Amino acid sequence: MALIRDLTEHATRRELVYRHVLAVGDLAIWDNRCTMHRGRRYEGKRYPRDMRRVTLEDVLPTLEQPV
């Protein structure tokens, strides 16, 4: 648990965090395998948005691929 806490504290340092303010026409994409992300409060009834999930398939699981 201490390792997870240390890694989380490192990854969420201010200089490593990107915060996006959505605007009309924006497209946001991230890779869940190597990204920590969270949603914030959003007025969905006032500002509807279209969210879709895509899962890609590769030849091998991520951890088995050569570096």
Rank of each mutant, 00 (worst) to 15 (best):
N32P: 01
R13K: 14
K45S: 07
V21W: 04
E9K: 13
A23N: 07
I4V: 14
E15F: 09
A11R: 08
H37K: 01
P61G: 04
A23K: 11
L63V: 11
E57L: 07
L22F: 08
L7P: 01
V59A: 11
R46L: 08
M51T: 15
L56P: 00
H37A: 03
L60W: 13
L16R: 13
P66N: 00
A23R: 11
A11M: 10
G44I: 00
P48H: 02
T35R: 03
D31E: 04
L7S: 14
V24A: 12
R46F: 00
T55M: 09
R52G: 07
R53E: 02
N32V: 02
P48T: 03
R19T: 12
T12F: 05
H37C: 01
G25F: 13
L3Q: 14
R13E: 05
Q65M: 06
R53K: 02
R49I: 00
L63D: 12
E64G: 03
E15S: 12
L22T: 02
E15K: 10
E15Q: 14
K45V: 08
H37D: 02
A2E: 14
V17R: 03
Y18S: 13
Y42L: 06
G39F: 00
L7N: 14
D26E: 10
R14D: 13
R53D: 01
T12G: 08
I4Y: 11
R38T: 05
M1A: 13
L56A: 14
T62R: 08
R46W: 00
G44F: 01
R40D: 14
N32Q: 03
A23W: 01
E9P: 08
D6P: 05
A23D: 05
A28K: 04
L63C: 05
H37P: 01
R49G: 02
E15A: 11
T62P: 00
V24E: 09
R13A: 06
A2N: 11
E57S: 10
V21H: 08
R41N: 09
H37V: 00
L3P: 07
N32K: 01
T62N: 06
V67R: 09
Y42K: 06
H37E: 03
I29A: 07
T35P: 02
Y42T: 05
P61D: 04
T55C: 05
Y18M: 12
E64P: 05
H10E: 15
